[in-house]
Structure formats: structure tokens, C-alpha cells
């Protein structure tokens, strides 16, 4: 399982780098879709079908919207002039990468092994959620009963996004 996950995540990282550096915007979007669908397979391997369903639908809709935008405007990336002093920025980048790796290594050395984390709070959820909420799907039971505030926040985020899009795009239409 970990080998499969590592292979998929490596492909996702490569696709993300391709998406940044592609000159053609359509291929950048397709590489970015590779990242999203790879995440779907990761969720399926980690036994999270709820997240996989949401991710695959949202990824498809996002890809459709972005492909429509790119086909409507230009397919080539604009020429962005980079900073000429490349040596200094590269050195600073490598120093930051080394510092971050050192602290990341120190941070994860205290964690338990992959897949064998200590269950304290979640154990009570797993054993009691079905009998307390009456919902066989434990994820939905936890989302709408124990963690109602979190789910309300997520709904508010989507609501705010829709209101923001309407505010920016529809000002001329509502005169």
C-alpha cells in the first residue's frame, strides 16, 4: 500500500512541476488534472470513498471550467520577465530547502509508524457513532452530529464563494 502511494505521489509531484513550467496552458491544465485524479486514487487506496466521490466530481467540474476559459482566451503563457540575478535566488532557495528538511526530519521523528497512530478520540467515535446517531455511515454521522460546526463552516465557505463570484461578475448585469 505504501509503495503504491509513494509511486502515485511521485507522479503527482512530477505533474505539478510540469503544470508550473508548461508553455501551453492546456497541457498545464491537463497536468493539474493528473494531480487531482491521482489524489482520488490515493483516497481510494486509503479507504476513504466519501472523499473520493467529492474529489472526482469537483475535479471534473473544475477542469471543465478551466478548459473552457483557456479555449476562450489565449493558449500560450504570457512572457513573464524573470529576475536576472539567478545565482542569489537559487542559493537562498537551497538554503531554505535544507533548513526545512532538517526541521521536518526532527518533527516527524517523534511520530508513530504510518497507519499505526494512537487512537484516543477517534476510537470513541468509531465504537459509539453508529449507536448514538443512528447513522450507519460513520462519516456522515460524525459530520452532522459531533462536528456540526465544522460542516456549517464548510457550507459557509461555498456560500461565500458563490456570493463573491456574483459580486464580481454580475455587477454590470444588475444595473
Amino acid at each position: 500500500m505504501e509503495v503504491m502511494l509513494s509511486i502515485i505521489i511521485c507522479f503527482m509531484i512530477i505533474a505539478a512541476i510540469v503544470a508550473i513550467h508548461a508553455r501551453d496552458l492546456l497541457s498545464a491544465i491537463i497536468a493539474q488534472g493528473f494531480v487531482g485524479y491521482g489524489l482520488v486514487i490515493c483516497f481510494l487506496i486509503l479507504k476513504a470513498p466519501d472523499l473520493a466521490i467529492v474529489q472526482i466530481v469537483v475535479e471534473t467540474i473544475t477542469l471543465i471550467i478551466m478548459v473552457a476559459v483557456v479555449l476562450d482566451s489565449s493558449r500560450l503563457e504570457l512572457n513573464v520577465s524573470f529576475d536576472r540575478r539567478k545565482g542569489g535566488t537559487t542559493a537562498v532557495t537551497f538554503i531554505f530547502i535544507i533548513v526545512l528538511l532538517v526541521y521536518f526530519n526532527r518533527a516527524i521523528s517523534g511520530l508513530s509508524k504510518f497507519g499505526e497512530h494512537t487512537l484516543r478520540m477517534s476510537e470513541a467515535y468509531v465504537t459509539d457513532a453508529a449507536s448514538q446517531t443512528g447513522s450507519l455511515n460513520l462519516v456522515t454521522g460524525i459530520l452532522w452530529d459531533f462536528r456540526g460546526y465544522d460542516t456549517l463552516g464548510e457550507a459557509t465557505v461555498l456560500f461565500t464563494a458563490a456570493i463573491g463570484v456574483l459580486t464580481i461578475l454580475r455587477l454590470t448585469g444588475k444595473k
Binding site: P49, D50, I53, V54, V57, V58, T60, I61, I64, G134, S135, L136, N137, V139, T140, G141, L143, E154
Partner: peptide, 20 residues
Amino acid sequence: GHLTPGGGFAGGALVAGAFI
């Protein structure tokens, strides 16, 4: 949503996909 995987978010996105 309370019996099988999925729920409000996944189903709502599917319904929106049909209209789109």
C-alpha cells in the same frame, strides 16, 4: 447519505454536474 458513502456535498456536486 447516512447509509452509504457520500452525502450532501458529493450528491450536490453530482446534481450540479448534470445541469452543467
